[in-house]
């Protein structure tokens, strides 16, 4: 049987790619376990976990990520919904706008933010709270490409227009259509957008360092300058976090797809 033949080239490339990704990671992991001479130990991890700055950074970033996700959802779900319903011809423009954060380097974006909002009349960087507002706004923009696309894909799998009309003819106003019909059917899409946004915010360095807020990534960067083993341990921790997010995403979307696709 022809289909059963082993494609050695395919295997070769898979192995090569796997090595390319896994070797450095293995190196980091191995290194992070060798803080104590001649033995394998979790010493570096102990130090990281014992450092209050780590926990503060973790806590701060998590909180910011959650706020970012809530703001993004409130902002993008109605926007994309409206686009599908009323201005489908605006899609190309939306695509371009939402891709901008990928095109414009974050550093440029951050300088723009600081120049605009740290001066009168805004002066947002004077207080921690207003700086956090600014940082969340920045995170919302940075994670916009992910959030928009996730919701867009979810919306595409629904017959948004007919579902809306069906709900309206049954007496729902716009808000009720959104809350009872659209959002529940976008559950998977919103969750996957949220998880990617979460990972993005947790790893975001530039915004937080230039706005001088105690986020996780600047702490990692700082540690990297002064220590050897601890940053390796931190890198592994953040990998684990990201992979945990992705795994969660996988589980969630598997649980939902069969229903979404056939339930149309």
């Amino acid at each position: 049987m022809k289909a059963q033949q082993i494609n050695w080239w395919a295997i070769f490339w898979i192995v090569l790619a796997a090595l390319y990704f896994l070797l450095p990671m293995y190196g980091t992991l191995d290194f992070s376990l060798r803080m104590e001479r001649n033995t394998i130990s979790l010493k570096a991890y102990e130090i990281v976990f014992a450092d209050p700055r780590f926990w503060r950074g973790f806590q701060y970033s998590t909180l910011m990520a959650l706020i970012t996700i809530v703001v993004s959802i409130i902002l993008f779900v109605p926007t994309v919904y409206w686009m599908y319903l009323k201005v489908p011809q605006a899609r190309p423009i939306m695509e371009i706008i939402t891709i901008l954060p990928f095109v414009i380097p974050t550093i440029v974006y951050v300088f723009g933010l600081i120049r605009t909002f740290s001066r009168p009349p805004f002066q947002l960087t004077l207080h921690a709270f207003t700086t956090d507002m600014l940082i969340v706004a920045g995170y919302v923009v940075i994670s916009m490409p992910f959030m928009f696309r996730a919701i867009d894909v979810g919306m595409r799998a629904l017959d948004v227009r007919t579902l809306t009309e069906a709900a309206q003819s049954l007496g729902s106003n716009w808000f009720q259509v959104l809350v009872y019909v659209i959002v529940p059917n976008l559950r998977v899409a919103i969750l996957s957008g949220a998880l990617i946004s979460f990972a993005t915010v947790m790893g975001e360095l530039i915004l937080a360092s230039f706005l001088v807020r105690p986020a996780l990534a600047p702490y990692m960067a700082l540690l990297g300058l002064t220590k050897a083993y601890e940053p390796a341990a931190l890198a592994i921790i953040s990998y684990a976090l990201t992979w945990f997010s992705l795994g969660l995403l996988q589980i969630v979307s598997q649980g939902g797809t069969t229903r979404q696709l056939t339930g149309r």
Binding site: D159, T162, L163, A166, V181, N185, G263
Partner: peptide, 11 residues
């Protein structure tokens, strides 16, 4: 209103 595509709420 009844639609050609049924338009039942999948959730």
């Amino acid at each position: 209103m009844v639609f050609q595509s049924y338009a039942l709420f999948p959730n």
